[in-house]
Amino acid sequence: MTITRPKTPLKQLDGFIAAAPDSRGDVSTRTGLKTKRGRHRSQVSVVLPDAVLSQLDAEAERRYMSRSALVTMLINQFLGDANS
């Protein structure tokens, strides 16, 4: 027995997708080695030892923060809040 899907007009779906704010590429665009997040932020990938990651996750949980928020906060503190 085959499964059939009802056919939806593609123009209607294309219009819906085109109306999404991130469909224009201004939220996240790939440039060289970085992925841009807005105008002044870039996404980076970091490799950490498992022990360090465990400590980082424990501290983030203790502070009720996400891992990303904690890393951003710690980097800003280390750099003297010059770029925040």
Results as ranks from 00 to 15, higher is better:
residue 28 S to E: 09
residue 44 V to H: 12
residue 32 G to R: 04
residue 14 D to E: 08
residue 64 Y to I: 08
residue 11 K to P: 00
residue 33 L to S: 08
residue 24 R to V: 01
residue 18 A to E: 10
residue 14 D to G: 09
residue 37 R to P: 04
residue 23 S to D: 01
residue 10 L to Q: 11
residue 43 Q to R: 15
residue 74 L to N: 02
residue 81 D to G: 11
residue 47 V to L: 10
residue 22 D to A: 10
residue 54 S to Q: 12
residue 28 S to C: 05
residue 47 V to M: 09
residue 56 L to M: 12
residue 65 M to T: 02
residue 59 E to D: 02
residue 77 Q to W: 01
residue 63 R to Y: 11
residue 32 G to D: 05
residue 47 V to T: 15
residue 22 D to G: 05
residue 58 A to H: 09
residue 53 L to V: 05
residue 13 L to M: 10
residue 37 R to K: 15
residue 42 S to C: 14
residue 44 V to M: 09
residue 75 I to H: 03
residue 31 T to I: 14
residue 38 G to Y: 00
residue 71 V to M: 07
residue 42 S to T: 09
residue 15 G to H: 03
residue 42 S to M: 05
residue 52 V to M: 07
residue 11 K to Y: 00
residue 67 R to F: 13
residue 8 T to R: 08
residue 69 A to K: 13
residue 40 H to A: 15
residue 12 Q to W: 00
residue 30 R to C: 09
residue 51 A to F: 03
residue 62 R to P: 00
residue 20 A to T: 12
residue 14 D to P: 00
residue 18 A to T: 13
residue 34 K to M: 06
residue 49 P to D: 13
residue 62 R to H: 15
residue 67 R to E: 08
residue 47 V to Q: 02
residue 42 S to Y: 04
residue 45 S to F: 11
residue 58 A to T: 04
residue 42 S to H: 10
residue 54 S to E: 06
residue 52 V to R: 13
residue 21 P to H: 08
residue 55 Q to I: 05
residue 26 D to Y: 01
residue 13 L to R: 08
residue 70 L to G: 05
residue 16 F to S: 08
residue 61 E to C: 09
residue 36 K to T: 04
residue 52 V to E: 11
residue 84 S to E: 08
residue 41 R to E: 14
residue 23 S to T: 01
residue 59 E to W: 06
residue 80 G to V: 06
residue 39 R to I: 12
residue 16 F to Y: 10
residue 81 D to C: 05
residue 76 N to K: 04
residue 21 P to L: 07
residue 49 P to T: 14
residue 8 T to K: 03
residue 26 D to E: 09
residue 10 L to A: 15
residue 56 L to W: 14
residue 55 Q to A: 14
residue 53 L to H: 06
residue 79 L to D: 10
residue 59 E to C: 05
residue 67 R to K: 09
residue 9 P to E: 05
residue 11 K to L: 03
residue 15 G to M: 02
residue 13 L to V: 01
residue 8 T to G: 02
residue 70 L to D: 00
residue 18 A to W: 01
residue 42 S to K: 11
residue 68 S to H: 05
residue 73 M to N: 08
residue 76 N to P: 00
residue 8 T to A: 02
residue 39 R to F: 02
residue 64 Y to D: 03
residue 60 A to D: 12
residue 60 A to I: 10
residue 16 F to L: 14
residue 39 R to C: 04
residue 79 L to Q: 07
residue 84 S to F: 11
residue 18 A to P: 00
residue 11 K to C: 03
residue 35 T to Y: 01
residue 15 G to S: 07
residue 64 Y to M: 10
residue 76 N to C: 08
residue 18 A to Y: 00
residue 53 L to I: 02
residue 20 A to C: 13
residue 61 E to L: 13
residue 59 E to M: 08
residue 54 S to M: 03
residue 79 L to T: 06
residue 17 I to R: 11
residue 52 V to T: 15
residue 77 Q to R: 04
residue 71 V to Q: 02
residue 33 L to I: 11
residue 77 Q to C: 03
residue 24 R to P: 00
residue 69 A to R: 15
